[in-house]
């Protein structure tokens, strides 16, 4: 009995020793809910781009470069 008790105590002690070894994620992961509202269309679907994503991206790229005075002003 005492042998069994000793083994039990030893196993419990060992379990306690490794209890802090578990690694939990330290960064909060927000669980995004699923959107319940109306569906939206991509911005290039309507006029004036009528679904031409490449042309839309090119237009935005050109506008963005207008913010760079090193290219806008020589």
């Amino acid at each position: 009995m005492s042998k069994f008790g000793g083994a039990l105590a030893l196993s419990l002690a060992l379990a306690l020793c490794v209890a802090a070894c578990g690694e939990r994620p330290q960064v909060v992961n927000y669980k995004q809910g699923s959107y319940q509202g109306k569906p939206d269309t991509p911005p290039y679907k309507a006029a004036p781009f009528n679904g031409d994503k490449t042309q839309w991206e090119h237009a935005l790229e050109t506008r963005a470069q207008n913010q760079n005075e090193y290219k806008r002003i020589r």
Partner: peptide
């Protein structure tokens, strides 16, 4: 987006 109780946010 995470805290909205009615899930009215979406990301394009």
């Amino acid at each position: 987006m995470a805290v909205c109780p009615v899930d009215c946010f979406y990301k394009t």
